[in-house]
Computed example of a mutant assay.
Amino acid sequence: MPYYYPLKKDKDISRRTRTIEGLQRIRKQLKDEKFPRKKEADSLILGTWNLRNFDDDRFNFGPRMTESFYYIAEIISHFDVIAIQEICYDLWPLKRLMRILGNDYDYIVTDVTHSSLGGNEERLGFIYNKKKVDFTGIAGEIVLPPKMMISKETEHKRQFSRTPFGVDFQSGWFKFFFSTVHIYFGSNSPSSAKYKRRVQEIEAVAKYLAQEAKKNIESNNQSNTNYILVGDFNIKKEGSAGFNALKENGFEVVTNNKGSNSDQTKFYDQISFMSKKNELKLLQPHRKDRVFQFFNSVFREEEDYETYKPIMKERIAEKLEYAEEMLAKATNQNDRDKYSGQIKSLKAARKTDVSLKAYYKKWRTFQVSDHLPLWIEIEINFTDKYLEKIKNFNPDQNL
Rank of each mutant, 00 (worst) to 15 (best):
W375P: 05
G47V: 15
E325Y: 02
E141S: 04
F294S: 07
R15W: 06
G22S: 10
A213N: 12
R99C: 15
V112W: 09
I217Y: 07
Y208P: 06
G22V: 09
Q170W: 09
N244I: 08
E306K: 13
Y360C: 11
D370N: 07
I202G: 07
E155W: 14
T110V: 00
M149P: 09
S345L: 14
D289G: 04
S223W: 11
D396G: 08
T255P: 06
I127A: 02
Y128P: 12
E141V: 04
Q397M: 15
K357A: 11
I13L: 13
S355A: 02
N257P: 07
E248D: 11
F35E: 08
E153K: 06
T365K: 07
N261F: 06
L44N: 04
Q264W: 12
Q211S: 06
F295C: 07
F174E: 01
C88F: 11
T17I: 11
K236P: 03
E218Y: 08
E67W: 04
N120M: 07
F165P: 00
S355R: 11
A193M: 03
F292T: 13
A328I: 08
N188D: 15
Q85N: 00
L283K: 14
K214W: 13
T163D: 15
D335M: 12
Y107P: 02
N381L: 02
V167C: 10
R58W: 06
Y128S: 08
K389Y: 14
G250E: 10
L209A: 04
S161G: 05
S262R: 07
F393Q: 06
K276A: 00
L372D: 04
Y227L: 03
F35I: 07
R300V: 13
N188K: 11
R315P: 12
K39H: 10
N256E: 12
E21F: 04
P146I: 08
I76E: 13
I271R: 04
E122D: 13
A348H: 10
S116N: 14
K347A: 05
Q270W: 05
F251R: 05
K319P: 08
K132I: 15
T136M: 15
Y208G: 01
A213I: 00
A139T: 12
Y386K: 12
N120D: 01
S68V: 07
D337C: 00
L320S: 01
K28P: 00
K8D: 09
S297C: 14
Q333Y: 11
M312T: 09
T66M: 12
N53H: 12
I343Q: 00
D370H: 06
I202A: 13
Q170L: 10
Q211T: 00
S171F: 09
K319Y: 11
S115Y: 14
P190M: 08
L144Y: 06
M312E: 03
S345D: 14
K215H: 09
D304I: 07
T225Y: 01
K28V: 11
F267L: 05
F233Y: 09
I127W: 01
K132W: 09
F292P: 00
I271C: 08
I271M: 04
